[in-house]
Write a protein that binds this DNA or RNA. Sequence first.
RNA 1: GAUUCCGUAGCUCAGCUGGUAGAGCACGACACUUUUAAUGUUGGGGUCCUGGGUUCGAAUCCCAGCGGGAUCACCA
Length: 568
Amino acid sequence: MASEQERLRQAARLQLMQSGIDPYPAAAFQRTHNTASLLAEADTLSPQQTVRLAGRLMERRIMGKASFAELQDAHGRIQLYLNRDDLGTAGDGVLYNEVFKKQLDFGDWIGVEGFLFTTQTGERSVHVRDLTVLAKTLRPLPVVKIDSEGHVHDGFTDPELRYRMRYVDLIVNPEVKTVFLKRSRMVQAMREFFLERGYLEVDTPVLQPIPGGATARPFITHHNALDVPLYLRIANELYLKRLIVGGFEGVFEFARDFRNEGMDRTHNPEFTILEIYVAFQDYRWMMEFTEQLIEHTARAVNGRTEVTLDNRTIELSAPFARVSMRNAILEHTSFDIHRKSEDEIRAFCVQESLEVGPEMGKGKLIDTLFGERCEKHYVQPTFITDYPIEMSPLCKRHRDDPDYTERFELMINGKELANAYSELNDPIDQRERFEEQLRLSQKGDDEAMFIDHDFLRALEFGMPPTAGMGIGIDRLAMLLTAQSSIQEVLFFPQMRPEALAVSSARSGFDGWALDPRWIGALTELYGSPEALRELKPTQVHQQLNGLRKKNKWDVPALLLDEVQAWFV
RNA sequence: GAUUCCGUAGCUCAGCUGGUAGAGCACGACACUUUUAAUGUUGGGGUCCUGGGUUCGAAUCCCAGCGGGAUCACCA
C-alpha cells in the first residue's frame, strides 16, 4: 500500500498529464551551465543573460507569490527564485500556482531558464523565468537539513537503508559521493602510473576451471554446455604470469575477485585487486615501485600524503620502513622462528594461547603468529619482508637463504594492503610447492591451492625473472578516503537479499469474497474493478471460467449471476 | 558461525512498573513578494519487523523467526 505522500505524488503526476504537461518528456533539455560552472562564471555573465540548468528540486520555501528553492545537480546546488508574475510566458500564474506549488514535489527533476542575480542576503541565485518538468518523483526522499552552523538534522544514517538504497544515499548525503569520486580518481591515478611506464592493461578470465593464485575458498558454479564446474576467480595471478611467459614485459589488471568467506567491516564477497607483473625485476625493485605508487596515488586523490584515520595520522610518502618477518615476530614475541620446526612453532603458539590446529602447516602457524601478535603494530606503512617458504607457494626462494622467500607485504594501519614476490619461475620447484599444498589440503586445509597443470606447463616454456604485486583496491580506497568500513567504498555492498513485500494489495479486488486464484486472475486480466466494469459480464464470465478449465482449478465454476453482481 | 544491541509515521527518534501510540522534520489546507533548518495557523498520516505465548488487555513481558549494527572467529 502506497503511503499518503506517494499517493499525492501519483495524483500530481496525473494532474500534470491532464493539463498537457508530460511528466517524463522525451526531448533533451539543453543546458548552458551546471550549478558549479554557473557560480564559477558568475562575474563574467552579462546582466540578465539567459542561463539554463537542470537538476533535482531539493527544497522549497514558498512565501505567497514568491518562492525560493534549491536545485541540485551532479556538481552541487544553487538557489532558485520564482515569482508568480514573471514565471512562464502565459502570464496567468498557472505555472507558479499549479505546477510549481502543487504538482511539483521535493526530489522532482526540473529544467529551469532564467538569469543569475544576487539576493538581499547576498546569495547568488537564478531568477527563474521558465520551468520544465523533466521527471516526476513518486517516492519522497529523506529530508536532510543542514543549519547555518553546519549541523545535520534528521540525517539519513541507517546503514541498512543507505546500502540497500544507495541511490537515495547519494542524493541526500553529498559526502558519500565524494568518497566514490575519490575512489575513481585513485584508480585513474594508478592506471596512469602504470601506463606511463609502458605496462599493458589486460583482462583475464573470471570463470576459471581451477581457482588459483591465492589461498581462499572459492565460489563454485556450473557451466551447462560443457557440463563442468567452474570457479569464480579468487585471484588472477596465474593468468597474468602466463602473459609474462607469452612475452609481455609488464601487465596489470584491476580484477574483481570472489571469495566465499565471512563478511564484515573489511570483507565483502567480491572485491577489487590490482595485480601487476613486471619482467626482469625483483621484489626489491617492486618495493620501491610500490611506495612510489602509493605516494603518487595519495597525492592525486587528496593533494597530500598524510591521511587521518581512526584518530591516527598516517604518512604515505616514500620510502616506507622495512622489517623482515623473522625480526617482526622476534620483536613482538621474543620468539625466533629461524630454523624452528613445525612442532616447535606450534608449541610456541599453544604457549601464547593462540588457536592452532593439527591441520595447520608451518606456514599457517607463522601466519597466525604474525597476524595475532605483530600485524596490528604496523600503523605507519611498513614492508614486512622475507616470508618463510611454507606460506608462499608461488614465490621465489630467497637469494640468501632457501628457507625464506623473496616476498613482502605492505602493512598500513595494522592491515595488509599489498603483497608482492619475486615470482617463482622454476617449474620443478613450483610443481613441488603445489604438491605440498595438496598435502595440506589432504590434512584438511580447505584453502590450500589446487595444482594448475597448465600453469606449470607455461612455466616449463620459461618465464623471465618477474616481480609481481597485488594491492587491495577497496582497502586502499578506505585508507585514502578515511573510511573504516569497506561497505562505505563499495556502491553496492553485498547484503542479505531483501524480502520485498509481494504487492498483491494494489488491485482493488482484495476485499472480494472469492478464492485467491480468482482474485489473482482478476488482477492479472483486468487490473482494477473499474477496468473490469468497462467490459461485458458475459465476456468476463467466460474468460474466467475458461481460465479455470485450462488450469484445472478445483473450485466451482463461476455463475453468470455472480459475475453480473460485480457490475452493480 | 558465536555473543550482544537494535527494528515504532516518508526520515530522525520518544514511548516509565503492560491499559492498542507521540515529537521534530516531511506531507495537505490557508496566510505571506528576497527567504535560506523560512515563518504562522491548522489538518491528515501507523500491519508499533513477523509468528506464537502469558494476560481481561502487549509497541511494552516471554519464546521462535526475519533483517540490520557492533564485537569475535575465518579471510584480503
